[in-house]
Computed example of a mutant assay.
Amino acid sequence: MDKLASCFVHHGAPSQTFKLHNLQRRSTSPLSPGRRSVPTVRCAAAHAATATKLSTVDVAVVNGSNDTSSFDFERYLSSKARAVNHALDLALQGLRCPDSLTESMRYSLLAGGKRLRPALAIAACELVGGPPAAALPVACAVEMIHAASLIHDDMPCMDDDDLRRGRPSNHVAFGEPTALLAGDALLALAFDHVAAGCSASSVVPADRALRAVVELAGAAGVSGVAAGQVADMEGEGAVSVGLVGLEYIHVHKTARLVEAAAAAAAGAIVGGGREEEVERVRWYGHVLGMLLQVVDDVLDLTATSEQLGKTAGKDAAAGKATYPRLLGLDGARAYAGELLAKAEAELDGFDGVRAAPLRHLARFMAYRQH
């Protein structure tokens, strides 16, 4: 965990007001259903003039029900990561396939990391009053889909990256054919795991399990990661890709997976959330996924390969459309600030204690340094 994140994790939310550039707060009631729009990014020059840099700004929580200063986010995240790691390890035991395929799957799925997406699923379940155990199959499935997408993303026919999380990418370690099949196998295992896990649970009714599977399928397929990846590749080197095209890519490639599969909809569904609650959390996850990508784009320019655990500067070298390229570095940081405030606004109608993990998770994603 980076130093800045550790600072507000250990000491709680700082007391100063969170000052961001051109924040747009939602004016509807806290749990009103209906689609909302992500803050529109204005011209890069205007942002650059007054941008607040996310790497140095103080974070604050508003008074009252949103006061989460006593919440120990590091402890929460560590406990969820341990539970998910154990469950993932069990899921990969006894697979009836060649050892090389199992090892390739384990290599990527158990490579470590903070398990932010599974924690997001569990936190969303808890937010609507569900028990953490109800979300564990979904949390594992989210990580399986994510690992599969990273394996495929790194391959020579995609982003052609030899490094992932500080280690050789899966196709470098096991060869392209095995890596391709490991990604496919993890994707299939995700659906098997969430269906079997929910059906074996006494707290997740069959209709909720089915809805969770539908959410996962949408996140992984033609309305999600697959569509975003194709648009991403087709946009390489294209000077005509603007903000609309860039947001299409990342809404599908990044935000859709976080929104539907990782925490928002699927976690809230298995937790028994009402329709308006599911929609509220879904939109939180959508905005959070956009925030994740904006910060990734900034770090690709400002961090080293050692800090990132993958090759830095590849997006710029490949001529990809990124937020810093379209908005400037300060403009991208300012937009990330707007997205953070928007994500937190979606939690305002929920119980403050239950919402604490999601508030801290949003800030952690915004202020991370790798």
Rank of each mutant, 00 (worst) to 15 (best):
A255E: 04
D161V: 00
Y248A: 11
L20I: 15
T322H: 05
G349W: 05
T304H: 06
E338F: 10
T304D: 01
D232F: 04
P357R: 04
L246S: 00
S55Y: 11
E344P: 09
V281E: 00
V204D: 00
V353L: 12
D348Y: 14
R115W: 07
L361P: 01
E276P: 07
G34D: 11
G64A: 06
A182P: 01
G197C: 06
A188R: 13
H47M: 13
Y367S: 13
R115P: 07
R359A: 02
Y284S: 05
L101T: 04
G245K: 04
M105N: 00
D351Y: 05
H286G: 11
A362N: 02
P357S: 03
G113R: 03
G245R: 06
S29R: 13
G237M: 04
Q16P: 14
A355Y: 02
H286A: 14
A179T: 00
N85S: 11
A91Y: 01
P156H: 05
P33I: 08
R208S: 01
V298I: 11
Y284P: 03
A141V: 01
A231P: 04
G313M: 05
G112V: 08
A135T: 01
V281S: 07
A321W: 08
I269K: 00
A264P: 10
M158Y: 08
V353Q: 10
L210Y: 09
A185V: 06
A91T: 05
C198V: 02
E103I: 09
V230N: 10
R82L: 12
V59W: 14
R96W: 13
A81Y: 09
G237E: 01
D72E: 12
A317R: 14
G328N: 10
V172E: 06
A341S: 12
A119N: 09
A134K: 00
V244Y: 13
L109Q: 04
Y248E: 12
G271Q: 02
A220C: 04
S6I: 11
S65N: 13
F18V: 12
H193E: 09
L31V: 02
R36M: 14
L327A: 07
A264N: 12
L308W: 07
K253I: 04
D162Q: 09
Q93S: 15
S29L: 14
M290D: 06
S37A: 15
G235A: 12
V230C: 11
P324E: 07
G34Y: 10
L90S: 15
V258Q: 03
K114S: 03
L4C: 11
L257K: 09
